[in-house]
């Protein structure tokens, strides 16, 4: 099964992947790292608010919400060729 790289902002609600990298400035990277949002971590997107609102996701045992801009700079390896899981599968 091949992998597709996606930005966190573009993932579907409920989609799961592994963080490949943070493509942001030093400030953003330091803050996210310290919160435990790091490459190699499994991530599940929970929701995105309309009008470029914040993106909420689950990582390890906790949830984080970050602005849309930042979510566009979190690169995630998602499994491709597979639909996003339905609600009942989450």
């Amino acid at each position: 099964m091949s992998k597709t790289r996606k930005r966190l902002a573009d993932m579907a609600d409920g989609e799961v992947g592994v963080i490949a990298g943070l493509d942001g400035g030093r400030g953003m990277v330091t803050r996210l790292h310290a919160m435990g949002v790091r490459p190699g971590k499994r991530i599940r997107k929970i929701s995105r608010q309309p009008l470029r609102g914040p993106v909420a996701f689950e990582i390890d045992n906790f949830c984080v919400a970050i602005g849309h801009g930042m979510a566009g700079r979190v690169i995630v390896n998602c499994r491709s060729g597979r639909r996003a899981p339905t609600k009942s599968e989450i």
């Binding site: 803050r31 996210l32 919160m35 914040p54 909420a56 906790f62 949830c63 984080v64 919400a65 970050i66 602005g67 849309h68 801009g69 930042m70």
Partner: peptide, 10 residues
């Protein structure tokens, strides 16, 4: 205004 970055507790 900076972007939101917030841990959401259980």
């Amino acid at each position: 205004s900076p972007e939101l970055i917030l841990e959401i507790p259980s």
